[in-house]
Amino acid sequence: MKHQTLDELHSVAGISPFAPALLMTRAQRLERWAELLEQNPLRCLAALVGTEHLYPGVRAEARAAGSPLTVAFEDPLLRASGLQSDTYGEAKSFFQLSDWELHEIVCSCHAGATMQASWAAGRVRRIAVGNRIVAWLRSRFVR
């Protein structure tokens, strides 16, 4: 195998700085989302209204301009990893969240009509950590 510099590789192949993002795990995607929210912790974000009361098809298409989902979708790295929109259904699928987990992050019944980005980041982190704890407990006690 011949060693080549990055410049040499650019001349023969298209190299994307986002290529490693395509291999992001669920935990890494959630961590990235939390980091993005924490970049501007006082940013006022819109909540989605009554997500738990919406019919599944309507819920999947629900969105609010300037929501925590919008923050994720504004990130080129998450878009390069496959995030296609800032809708509830797309975020649920991309971040591999249950309805109740995503509801905890974005629904107005928890935060009111608006929330600070730092509040949403804390919710994202709690869900990510909680899932790691559950996975660890399963590995220890469920065989």
Rank of each mutant, 00 (worst) to 15 (best):
V134R: 00
M24W: 15
W119G: 14
C109P: 15
I15R: 11
Q28Y: 07
L77F: 03
K92I: 05
A135K: 00
R125W: 03
W100P: 14
G130D: 01
R126G: 07
E8P: 09
D75F: 02
L69K: 08
A121D: 07
R138P: 01
L23S: 11
S98L: 11
E74D: 10
C44K: 14
T87Q: 07
Y55T: 13
C109G: 07
S118L: 07
A34Y: 06
F73N: 10
V142G: 00
G82E: 06
T51L: 13
T25C: 10
T70A: 08
E90Y: 01
L36D: 01
A46C: 06
G50D: 15
V106C: 11
E104M: 09
A27Q: 12
F95T: 01
L37K: 04
D86S: 14
H103G: 10
L48Q: 11
R143L: 13
L78N: 04
A62E: 08
A19I: 04
A13T: 09
S108T: 09
V106Y: 02
L97P: 12
G112W: 04
F18Y: 14
H3D: 10
T5L: 05
A80P: 03
G14L: 06
A121C: 09
E90A: 15
P68M: 05
C44L: 11
L78V: 10
A128P: 04
F18E: 12
A135F: 00
S11Y: 01
R125H: 02
R32D: 01
L42R: 05
I105S: 09
R132Y: 00
H3A: 12
V12M: 14
A34K: 11
A13R: 14
H110Q: 15
F94A: 06
A80M: 08
V71Y: 09
I15F: 04
L102T: 06
D86N: 13
L30I: 02
L36V: 08
Q4M: 13
A113V: 10
A111V: 12
W100K: 14
R32W: 09
A60R: 11
V49K: 06
R59E: 03
G82H: 10
A34L: 08
A60S: 15
L45F: 04
P20G: 05
C107A: 09
Q28H: 05
T70R: 13
R32V: 09
A72T: 04
